[in-house]
Amino acid sequence: MRNIKRFWATNLLLLTFVCALAQEIKPYDQCSEKIKGSRFIAYPTYPGKPFLNDKFMMGEIEFNDGSKANKIGLNYGAYRDELIYYNPSISAQIVIDKKSIKGFSVTDKAGILRTFVRLFYPGYLHDDCYFEVLSQGKIMLLAFRKVDLERMDAYFSKTGMAYQPAYSYYLYSPGKGFASVKLSKSSLLARFDKAEQKVVRKILRRSGIYVSDETSLIAAWNLLSEKELHVIF
């Protein structure tokens, strides 16, 4: 009996050793692509939140060639729609060139990973924009996290100006483009043709979702995208 135990123990040890030896050597996780950008110019100081996060959070960027740079301090500057990266080795805040990346993901204060993609939206005159991906799929639900500097009542802001969120939401399909959606049931219904609106209403009623804010819009879209209904772009 002891012999059998010894046999199995030795065999197991040998197998573990061989398996450890046969482990594939993983490629070195190094960002060979260099981050391109220019120095960040501070935003004017007014009340409100011009950034996605209050401080730099760990994130990942994906370059155009598909390579990734991870564990870097990132923040999304919503006021100018730019991605700011902190380079600790040269102590500089750098605005990453939009054209050099496909997208990025950053963890927010609540620990939720938020993913952004760079897309060209014909409605905005300037460069490409960063859109937050709220729901993945063949048709994506995106949010453009724009923050505007607006005139405010002096009771709210002594300087008379403040940063105000001006978020907009879109359904996006790579082949078809963008379709604007507002945080309301009627706006969501308008994205479907008459025949399918009935089905949409039924699904929303049965699941008890009333589209009134971002969370409910995401929940509603997640349900509808499973049904693969035809969306009007």
Partner: peptide, 12 residues
Amino acid sequence: ICRKERFYGDLN
């Protein structure tokens, strides 16, 4: 010409 301060990785 690039008139801004430019960064390329750790080079500026």
